[in-house]
């Protein structure tokens, strides 16, 4: 897994790449937590994620829920096919504020 912080046109985005699974869970949580503590708006780009597992999904859900609790905004800005598959399978589109075909 790679995490990149990208300043895009109007927003700051955390882009994840590669396999995101239990081996990267601690790193992912720490990165997202640091971002959450520093920013009021967080965008998460899952377009180039090649694989996601339960540990990754629950961290993403926790990020969105925790941000909302703190009155901040965290959202998934983009998904690739791997992420879309798993989100669709778990029927988490609403939870993650996504509309997937």
């Amino acid at each position: 897994m790679e995490i990149q912080i990208e300043e895009r046109e109007s927003e700051r985005v955390l882009a994840l790449r590669g396999e995101v699974n239990i081996y990267h869970a601690a790193q992912l949580r720490d990165a997202l937590l640091a971002e959450l503590n520093a920013q009021s708006e967080i965008g998460l780009d899952l377009e180039h994620v090649s694989e996601m597992d339960t540990s990754a999904i629950q961290i993403v859900v926790a990020l969105l829920r925790t941000a909302a609790d703190q009155g901040k905004l965290a959202r998934v800005v983009k998904v690739g096919s791997a992420a879309a598959n798993i989100i669709r399978f778990c029927n988490l589109q609403d939870e993650l504020g996504l509309q997937l075909p």
Binding site: A25, L32, L33, S55, A62, R65, T66
Partner: peptide
Amino acid sequence: LPALDELDPETC
């Protein structure tokens, strides 16, 4: 599911 700061990343 705990808040992100309390979440144990390896717990299910």
